[in-house]
Nucleic acid binder design. Structure first.
Length: 401
DNA sequence: AGGTATTCACATGAAACTATTCTCTGAGTTAGG
DNA sequence: TAACTCAGAGAATAGTTTCATGTGAATACCTGT
């Protein structure tokens, strides 16, 4: 682009009426003032936590619900309110929110406790101490003065799935050792069956109360989108039926509000880039494709090299034949590994990698028997063909082929 | 024709191995008393 | 002297290999008509 054109471009850009007012209200970490269609859950949780206002220890709570059903949102909201109420009445209440999914921050017992200790203002070394020592330090920190404590452990099912329920047992037991302060734990889980696999002692003490978050239906999603879009976008930027379509898309995928908002945001960005004065239905379609494509590319990008080579091998065959079998892939995989300079893995492992790629939803693998000619996995692609080329190019570049 | 046995080409499981990451211990270091 | 920090030993874990066993149906091979 020439200099003059570029100057024109920028001035045009500024002249244009923007679609967005405040994009942040569509982002997933945004905390809205009111949360539609969650009154019941808010009330339940508030009622459970209310004893804190009388300096009594509230019961431990468990929140269940699929992703994007407002669990985190509701709990932070209620906690915020109760914190303010306590401040007004001069009650000492401290809260801490910890997402257990964060890698390298809270994915081992030691790290979780260390992170909690830090959260309450005690600097602890990242490594080098015995675990019971760190418990002791944490306990001392919080037990210094008389106060109430509310911990939110988000995505707790991920943590327990990784390191077992010992940590929850220790945390609940910790309460009986506290002299001055009282601790309430709010556990948030995406997995509805989560407590079934817990130690019964942990289960009974941790889930004294339970709050279930059902998925949003299309009508509720529409409301949420309307509310948020009023904050995020200028007036009258939506074509007829755009928000409804957005809601319908997300409702199909287990009522995930996060997805719906993302869809709306991306649709807005696309139409802005296209210089369109408003957001049309086709932009929603584009947005959905783009989100899906980004998801796939992101997964592929973050896979280990061996996994990438396996996928590359699959794609290479998929071009020619419609059906791909493990044996074909493995030969090609072997050659590619040598070309790239990696030692090839055994067929056993590659078979598992194929199963992993299947789990990630990038390929479809099913076991078929071809009679005399053996048994193998028949592999097809789970991503639309328009994206396959992109993935292949990405892999080619990433692997230096 | 109908029934059974064989056989293929991997799938699937379990155990063993290995490299990396965590946890723990004790020695060294620091800072406050 | 107590608290803290750090390095290295040992334990735990993840990723992989090795070995063993399992699988479904097309085909080969019988068997009796």
């Amino acid at each position: 682009m020439l200099k003059k054109d570029l100057a024109n471009f920028f001035s045009d850009y500024l002249k244009k009426k923007p679609l967005f007012i405040d994009k942040s209200s569509l982002q997933s970490n945004y905390n809205p003032k009111d949360i539609p269609h969650r009154d019941e859950q808010i009330e339940q949780l508030a009622r459970i936590l209310a004893p804190a206002l009388r300096t009594e220890k509230p019961s431990n709570v468990f929140l269940y619900g699929k992703t994007g059903t407002g669990k985190t949102c509701v709990s932070l909201h209620v906690l915020n309110q109760i914190e303010q109420a306590c401040k007004k009445n001069n009650i000492k209440l401290k809260t801490y929110y910890l997402n257990c999914k964060l890698k390298k921050v809270a994915d081992t017992e030691y790290r979780v406790i260390a992170q909690l200790a830090r959260g309450f203002g005690r600097e602890v070394p990242a490594t080098g101490l015995p675990t019971d020592q760190i418990y002791k330090m944490f306990l001392e920190t919080i037990d210094k003065d008389k106060q109430l404590l509310i911990l939110i452990l988000d995505e707790i099912d991920q943590l327990v799935g990784k390191i077992g329920d010992g940590i929850l047992y220790n945390l609940t037991r910790l309460n009986s050792e506290l002299k001055n302060c009282q601790m309430t734990i709010i556990g948030i889980s995406n997995d509805l069956m989560f407590t079934d696999n817990l130690d019964p002692r942990v289960k009974s003490s941790l889930s004294e109360e339970e709050v279930v978050f059902p998925p949003y239906n299309a009508i509720e999603l529409k409301d949420i989108l309307k509310k948020r879009s009023e904050l995020a976008f200028n007036k009258n930027v939506f074509d007829e039926g755009v928000i409804e379509k957005c809601a319908a898309y997300a409702a199909r995928e287990h009522g995930d509000a996060r997805r719906a908002l993302e869809l709306l945001r991306v649709a807005g960005e696309i139409s802005e880039r296209e210089n369109s004065p408003n957001i049309k239905i086709k932009h929603i379609d584009h947005a959905e494709q783009k989100i899906e494509k980004d998801r796939v590319l992101d997964i592929v990008k973050t896979q280990p090299k061996q996994s990438q080579i396996t996928l590359y091998s699959i794609l290479n065959f998929y071009n020619d034949h419609k059906r791909v079998f493990t044996g074909d892939i493995y030969d090609f995989y072997n050659d590619t590994c040598i070309k790239v300079g990696l030692t090839p893995l055994t067929q056993r492992r590659v078979s598992d990698i194929i199963a992993e790629l299947d789990m990630l939803g990038i390929i479809n693998a099913k076991v078929v028997s071809k009679g005399r000619y053996g048994r193998t996995k028949e592999i097809g692609m789970a991503i639309p063909s328009s994206n396959i080329k992109k993935v292949k190019d990405l892999l080619k570049e990433g692997l230096g082929l």
